[in-house]
């Protein structure tokens, strides 16, 4: 039972980071009906910016580096949309998917050239863990889970209590109707890419704190976040959060029964299972999933 509680807590920690990454996917999908394959790589860049600012060169305090990285990554996300996606908005879907893949390869390559392809760790000083009942949790892990809840709460307030949030929901609902009521869709789309990328940077940095950094980590983030989004229902922001937590928990509990080297394949197994059983996910509608009637 003790090990169960411990694995559950580890799962919550991982799940929080996946949920943060998945939210960006879901927001972009609900507005543009397009899966931003570069999202995982953007999260990876965010993690590296935090690492660069805090450890490698400027030695900024970690929170400062973290927020600066979110800001810079938001700008990166907005630029990627402006340069690579906007010219293709009316092009066939195949074209946008192709550029998104290309963008992720460019970002991975750029980080490999600038920072090296080796694994990097934040190597924070080892701190005394706390025991809560049978569960051992380190201060870093507490920060990780606290931060993911904090950002999700922030996003909830943004989407439900602000004018921008209302506009985002309006564009997601019906872009042409939103334009007709005086909302500039381009601005909203840029804002969504900015917010999504900032959250991705947070997710990437937290994953980096939890485990380590590698230029290829983007692909894994993409697959896990996508599994979370599909599980929660494509286009549903809250579904993505729930999906992220489920993926994180199942993945960590899975280590109980299968060797840890297969841990990363669990998210993929869940993804395939959901597609077979209920492609619309837990909270999604069938139309959102784009299931074609046969």
């Amino acid at each position: 039972m003790d090990i169960f509680a411990q694995l559950l807590v580890n799962g919550l920690i991982a799940g929080g980071t996946y949920a943060l990454a998945a939210v960006g996917y879901s927001m972009v999908y609900s507005i543009l009906k397009f899966i931003n394959f570069a999202h995982g790589s953007i999260a990876m860049v965010g993690a590296y910016i935090t690492f660069f600012l805090a450890i490698q060169s400027l030695h900024l305090p970690l929170p400062a580096a973290f927020f600066l990285s979110m800001l810079l990554t938001a700008l990166l996300g907005i630029s990627v949309e402006r340069i690579a996606y906007r010219p293709l908005r009316r092009a066939p879907k195949l074209s946008t998917l192709t550029t998104a893949i290309a963008v992720s390869f460019v970002l991975d390559a750029a980080v490999m050239i600038l920072m090296g392809a080796d694994i990097k760790t934040f190597s924070l000083p080892v701190m005394q863990g706390y025991s809560i009942g049978p569960v051992l949790i380190t201060p870093v892990q507490i920060i990780i889970i606290g931060a993911s809840f904090f950002f999700m709460l922030l996003l909830y307030i943004l989407l439900t209590r602000t004018k921008l949030g209302k506009a985002i929901r309006a564009v997601a609902d019906d872009p042409s109707l939103a334009e007709a009521s005086g909302i500039n869709a381009n601005v909203i789309i840029a804002a969504v890419f900015g917010i999504g990328s900032a959250l991705a940077a947070a997710a990437g940095s937290l994953i980096g704190l939890d485990t380590n950094l590698q230029p290829t980590m983007g692909f894994l983030i993409t697959i896990k976040a996508f599994a979370a989004v599909v599980l929660g229902g494509l286009g549903s922001v809250y579904g993505a959060i729930v999906g992220g937590f489920i993926i994180g928990i199942v993945e960590n509990l899975g280590v109980w029964v299968i060797p840890p080297v297969w841990k990363d394949t669990i998210a993929y197994g869940i993804l395939i299972l959901v597609l077979f059983v209920r492609p619309a996910g837990l909270f999604g509608s069938v139309e959102q999933a784009g299931v074609l009637q046969q």
Binding site: F34, K93, W262, G290
Partner: peptide
Amino acid sequence: LPTVKLVGDYLAVVTMGLGEITRAVFKN
């Protein structure tokens, strides 16, 4: 079987995942 009847994005991610899984199998 499950992906071809959905919009193209699903096939893209599922096959990308397959790439990672097969590599994990070859490696592990």
